[in-house]
């Protein structure tokens, strides 16, 4: 079945086509959401939202891009919206703190996220890198994650983010520079050095 036929069966609401879509893109959507949000339950919720939206709005899919590109775009949009909402709540929590009310939000200056797909020997270093990735601006973070964790080509990233190839290159270069800066800062702190040495048993 070619992509056009597949899209037609999805538009007709055929269950087997949707099963196939899940088989093809389920893990990709979940992995992208997990990398963007660094939280398993949130990533599962976003995956659910993405597939629900795909199910309901595939009728309006015009086929101007590949189906996977469209699904990735929905995933990224939903993740960014989710994070913006979360950040607004955090800012509100900060304001509450200023006025003396307590917030339960944990401070994120220690590695907290361990991606299950990272090789065991890189586990602790990767956790520090995820911490730095979390501090990148949205567009740089999106481009970096699509490139590193989803292994998308520059052309595919450009399609998902709806930007030019040159912009993708520039975003990735700046992301790398920023990550180096964040890591340098991280390793400078004696508290963090001790923690890392302890974690990687040196």
């Amino acid at each position: 079945m070619n992509e056009n036929e597949f899209i037609r069966s999805l538009k007709e609401g055929r269950r087997e086509a949707f099963n196939q879509l899940w088989a093809d893109l389920g893990n990709k959507v979940f992995n992208t959401a997990l990398s963007m949000l660094q939280h398993t339950e949130d990533a599962e919720d976003i995956t659910q939202e993405v597939f629900t939206e795909v199910f309901h709005s595939v009728k309006n899919f015009k086929g101007e891009s590949k189906l996977s590109t469209w699904v990735y775009r929905i995933t990224i949009t939903k993740c960014l919206d989710f994070q913006r909402k979360k950040n607004r709540k955090k800012r509100f929590g900060f304001m509450q703190n200023l006025f003396g009310e307590e917030s339960n939000e944990p401070l994120r200056d220690i590695p907290h996220f361990y991606h299950p797909g990272v090789q065991l020997e890189n586990k602790e270093r990767a956790a520090i890198l995820w911490l730095a990735i979390d501090r990148l601006p949205e567009r740089q973070r999106t481009a970096f994650i699509l490139s590193k964790t989803e292994d998308l080509s520059y052309t595919e990233i450009a399609g998902v983010m709806d930007i030019s190839l040159a912009s993708v290159e520039s975003l990735l270069v700046r992301a790398k520079q920023n990550l180096q800066g964040h890591l340098r800062e991280y390793y400078k702190k004696p508290k963090n050095q001790a923690q890392v040495l302890k974690q990687i048993n040196i």
Partner: peptide, 8 residues
């Protein structure tokens, strides 16, 4: 450290 990582 993310090189050669597997998809979750």
């Amino acid at each position: 450290s993310l090189d050669n990582m597997q998809r979750a």
